[in-house]
Simulated assay, not measured.
Amino acid sequence: MEPLIGAEVLWIPIDDTSAVGAARRMATGLADRAGFDEARSGELAIAVTELAGNLHRHAHDGAMALRLTRPYSSADGTAEPAVEVIALDHGPGMADFEAHLRDGYSTGGTLGVGLGAVTRLASTFDAWSQPERGTVVAARFAAPRRPITRIGAPAAPGRDRAAGLTRPMAGETACGDAYAVRRTADGVVAVLCDGLGHGPLAARAAQRAVEVFTETADEDVTALVTRLHRELRPTRGAAVGVVRLDQTRGLVQFAGLGNVAGAVLRSGERSRHVTSMPGIAGHQARTIRSFDYPVEGNALIVLHTDGLSTRWSFDGQWGLAGHDPLVIAAALLRDAGTRRDDAGVLVLTSRP
């Protein structure tokens, strides 16, 4: 199965009416690259216009992220392109999000299609909203359209257990943070990397780390970090973290170099922070070793670069744990991300 690679993300602040049109044009441009037919591209345009319009009318600090990915796998094992749409804000939030999905429900002038239509047009849809904290929506649009999958419910067989999101620092278009995920027979193995500094050279270091990871079949996290350290020598270097979730054994294994941080979390329990060794992959590594963390039942594994505050928490938001990892990653980036550095977050879910 082709690995899921964190693709380039187009970020659009939705701060005026023109931004709604810009988001629609960017989305249809991605649809063209994905080979969407005219009808499917039009459906995507409707959904993006609705989501961006809601951000403009109702939200504070609203933004939309768009990217072209290949997270779906067809029966013959080939990956199918999809456009992912993430809308996030610090707005008033919604106490009853389900009500907003019903046709005819409105709190103000809208397109008339509403969020309910967005869910019908999307291949997968999930959202998280809290009064006074804002809303996060994540929708994937595959070509051709697939039956809608609502995600804030028990995991469906084969559902992705990992997702990530990256954002460049303010004023930059290239992001020095990147990630990739690969399924294994018993779970997933993933990498998160933070190229040294920011800008194109940092992005190149992170992209090289992703290339090495995807070209390597080895699932041993220590061996993977050792290989990354060797292969990143021609670059400016990066902080890297490699995590393996073994569902069969109920175990998380982690190895890292540098400032990739993370934690294993369960509701009602104290979080266990993962240990990354000092160094810079490609330049300095005195010791490379892995650490094991047991996981049982519903647990979250969160990795992030230093573009997220180390003081982030799920305070009052443990309902997030049952949602799409992409929604969780977007909520963390919204709440704890800084615009003074590239930011990247990767979320793995452990469910029975």
Rank of each mutant, 00 (worst) to 15 (best):
E2F: 08
P3M: 11
G6A: 06
L10M: 07
I12D: 04
T17N: 09
G29Y: 00
L30T: 03
D32M: 13
R40P: 05
S41F: 00
I46F: 06
V48D: 03
T49I: 05
E50S: 10
L51M: 15
N54M: 10
D61N: 15
D61V: 02
M64W: 02
R67H: 12
A75D: 04
P81D: 10
V83D: 11
E84Y: 02
E84W: 11
V85P: 00
I86V: 15
L88D: 04
D89W: 00
P92F: 00
D103V: 06
G104Q: 03
S106W: 03
S106K: 09
L111V: 06
G112I: 05
L115E: 02
V118H: 01
R120T: 13
L121P: 00
D126H: 11
A127P: 00
S129K: 07
Q130W: 04
P131F: 05
R133C: 03
R133S: 14
T135R: 01
A139M: 11
F141M: 11
F141Y: 15
R145N: 09
P147Y: 12
P147V: 10
I148H: 11
I151A: 08
P157M: 02
P157G: 07
R159H: 02
G164L: 08
L165G: 07
P168G: 10
M169I: 08
A170S: 14
A170V: 08
G171W: 01
G176L: 08
A180G: 06
T184M: 09
T184E: 05
A185E: 15
D186N: 11
V191K: 02
D194E: 01
G195V: 06
L196M: 15
G197F: 05
R204F: 03
Q207A: 14
R208D: 11
R208N: 14
A217M: 13
E219Y: 02
T222K: 12
A223F: 04
L224C: 08
V225C: 13
R227I: 07
L232D: 04
L232P: 01
V242S: 11
V243F: 02
L245E: 02
L245M: 12
R249L: 13
G250S: 04
L251N: 04
V252E: 04
A255I: 07
L257V: 09
L257H: 11
L257M: 09
V260T: 13
G268A: 09
E269W: 05
H273S: 14
V274W: 02
T275C: 02
G279W: 03
A281G: 09
Q284F: 15
A285G: 06
T287F: 11
R289V: 10
R289W: 03
F291C: 12
F291R: 12
D292H: 08
P294W: 00
N298V: 10
A299F: 00
I301H: 08
I301S: 06
V302L: 12
L303P: 01
L303M: 09
T305R: 00
D306E: 13
R311N: 13
S313W: 06
Q317K: 07
W318I: 13
H323D: 01
P325A: 10
A330H: 05
A330M: 08
A331V: 14
A331H: 07
R334F: 01
G337A: 07
D341Q: 10
G344L: 08
V345A: 07
L348A: 14
L348T: 10
S350F: 01
R351F: 10
